[in-house]
């Protein structure tokens, strides 16, 4: 329909304009702020600031919690994906209801509800108290942040894993068993490698938002626990040091680029 080049340029121009204004320009501005000081002179100071103990600590904690959350999401999502993909029981419907429905609610609201659940006099501790079990002090700890991350980002792990598992032909699994593989060997040597593309995109889609979040950590971590996302947020909203905030953002971008390169390389291997 839009065979000639001119038409396709015209048709895509709204998106190109959108991408320019809302993607290219902001990234350019972050680079500009990150690599200059208040006088506008070029400097690496803002990037080197990551070496300051409080920044390094926030980055390390963010990486740590993002890795833990991603791992937990994977361990929860993979078996669920297997069950849904193997049973083929109107799984689309179940997926929508169980996994996508919670995403209809506002992200901040969902996170906030965990505050009510986890706080010291919250729902969880009331139940434990009624059962005469010891109280849990989870709120304002890294554990609460991990719970929030897992809850918020789990669907992004399930969907790509489910998709890649559903694509595996039953006969391929039968073939593995036919050749002598037991259930574990079939999982390890056939199912897991064949679902690698789904695992990689799931990991990417959970790891990156977990690494950069500041909303979950400020709500569930109180003000004491600072992740790199919170540090950057504060530079912009409290100290108004856009140069330092941008410089730290660039550091975070390095992680994201590494993650994308890894997933691109594995995509190429697939072909």
């Amino acid at each position: 329909m839009f065979s000639n080049r001119k038409t396709s340029v015209i048709m895509s121009s709204p998106y190109l304009a959108w991408a320019l204004i809302f993607i290219i320009v902001p990234i350019g501005m972050i680079f500009y702020y990150g690599l200059t000081d208040t006088t506008g002179a070029f400097t690496f100071k803002n990037i080197a600031a990551i070496a300051q103990p409080e920044h390094a600590k926030a980055l390390w904690l963010a990486v740590e919690l993002a890795v833990i959350s991603t791992l937990i999401c994977f361990l929860l999502a993979y078996p669920l994906g297997m069950i849904l993909a193997r049973n083929k029981m109107s799984s689309e419907g179940i997926l929508t209801t169980l996994i996508i429905l919670p995403m209809w609610m506002n992200f901040l609201l969902r996170t906030l509800s965990w505050v009510t659940l986890l706080e010291n006099r919250g729902v969880l501790n009331s139940i434990l108290g009624a059962l005469h079990l010891p109280q849990l002090h989870i709120i304002n700890t890294p554990a609460a942040i991990v719970v929030g991350m897992v809850y918020d980002f789990l669907p992004f792990m399930i969907l790509p894993i489910y998709n890649s598992l559903a694509k595996i032909d039953d006969e391929v699994i039968n073939a593995a068993q036919d050749l002598g593989a037991n259930k574990f060997q079939t999982l390890w040597r056939v199912i897991l490698p064949l679902s690698a593309p789904g695992i990689i995109s799931g990991v990417t889609m959970v790891f990156i938002p977990s690494l950069t979040t500041f909303a979950i950590s400020s709500m569930l971590g109180g003000s004491k626990i600072l992740l790199i996302g919170n540090v950057i947020e504060q530079e912009f909203t409290l100290t108004y040091d856009w140069h330092l905030g941008s410089g730290l953002s660039l550091i975070l971008m390095i992680f994201i680029v590494i993650n994308m390169v890894v997933s691109m390389l594995s995509d190429q291997k697939e072909d």
Binding site: D169, E171, A175, D178, N182, P193
Partner: peptide, 18 residues
């Protein structure tokens, strides 16, 4: 199936593409 002394050639080959 993995204990049986026989092997199958499947209709759509079912090769391990990885």
């Amino acid at each position: 199936p993995n204990k049986r002394q026989l092997n199958t050639v499947f209709q759509k080959y079912a090769l391990f593409t990885h």
